[in-house]
Design a protein around this nucleic acid. Structure first.
Length: 302
DNA sequence: CGTTGATCCTGGGCGC
DNA sequence: TGCGCCCAGGATCAAC
């Protein structure tokens, strides 16, 4: 479940290694990933040059000379660089104690859906076992980018456009539970299930609270908490629960820093109360019932 | 219009 | 041991 911190970690790892490289070969896997445009995509990618690599929310955007290559990693997408000169790992290795995966470099397999051979001699590989990911090629004009992203993405939380008035504007009129609104990419781009739970914990807000019932101070706390947890996630190289690896095939470190996500029944690191797990909008949702009171007011301490 | 529910997809975990 | 069942969930679309 690559969210903003995982995608940003991949972007930063990839950037210095692919900038200015030319695409000299393209190999594709399951056409589902390409939305039925596989052939034209292969044709248009061949010979292209990578001029920049950006991120919009959870999307990677490769700026090429004549087009934009847009990749969404879905649930299980992995983007890695493979050096044919180096030995491949025999497969995905599982750490016996932590059960976390260490991928390193691996040979393309049946889950590898896109390989871009670069003139540097290395290959950019996209692997996605669950195939929720998407690859598309947009016209080279920046208007094509806007046309695609404007209706889909709201505020970029790490960009200069992330302001409190802008945030409040996006929340205006919303009556749904705050967790559900956080998952809506048209509000704040890049927040997924893990960081939504973490941000709500950091802000001390119960995930079921309705947005229009939040006090101004609470919205302000949430505004800040979102950036705080996303930046911390990037600092630790993202969260690896199962599939996520960075561009070098290494797992992240933020899973050890999580306060609530995946910590069902474990003691809250702040107050010791057992973390609860509920289902909200079909999503597993974790919170501390004491630090994130349903009423919005902290329990009285006797 | 806002919100909810179903859908896609596979590997892993678990119970029997 | 092996089988079948269920779960994980991002984005999109249909329906309320």
């Amino acid at each position: 479940m690559p969210e903003l911190p995982e995608v940003e970690t991949i972007r930063r790892g990839l950037l210095p290694q692919i900038l200015g490289c030319r695409i000299v070969g393209v190999v594709t896997g399951d056409p589902k990933i390409f939305g039925g445009e596989t052939e034209s995509l292969v044709r248009r990618l061949s010979g292209e040059e990578i001029l920049a690599l950006d991120r919009r929310g959870k999307y990677l955007v490769f700026r090429l000379r004549n087009s934009f290559l847009v990749i969404h990693l879905g649930m299980t997408g992995q983007v890695t660089l493979r050096d044919p000169e180096l030995p491949d790992s025999p497969g995905f290795l599982r750490h016996p104690a932590t059960l976390l995966q260490r991928a390193r470099q691996h040979a393309p397999d049946r889950h590898t859906h896109l390989q871009l051979e670069l003139d540097s001699g290395r290959t950019l590989c996209l692997r996605d076992p669950r195939k929720f990911g998407k690859v598309l090629l947009l016209d080279g004009a920046t208007s094509a980018l806007d046309e695609f992203f404007t209706p889909r993405l709201g505020l970029e939380p790490l960009g200069p456009g992330y302001t409190l008035p802008g945030f409040l504007k996006r929340l205006a009129g919303r009556k749904a539970p705050v967790k559900a609104v956080l998952l809506d990419q048209r509000v704040v781009a890049g927040v997924g299930n893990i960081y939504a739970d973490e941000a709500l914990f950091a802000a001390g807000i119960h995930p079921c609270r309705r947005v229009h019932r939040l006090r101004p101070k609470e919205k302000e706390r949430l505004f800040s908490a979102i950036v705080q947890v996303l930046e911390l996630g990037i600092h630790f190289g993202g969260t690896t629960l199962r599939d996520y690896v960075d561009s070098d095939g290494e797992r992240g470190g933020f899973q050890d820093e999580l306060q609530v996500y995946g910590r069902t029944d474990e003691p809250c690191r702040c107050c010791g109360t057992g973390i609860r797990k509920i289902y909200l909008s079909q999503r597993g949702t974790h919170f501390c019932p004491r630090c994130q009171p349903r009423s919005g007011y902290p329990a009285k301490t006797p």
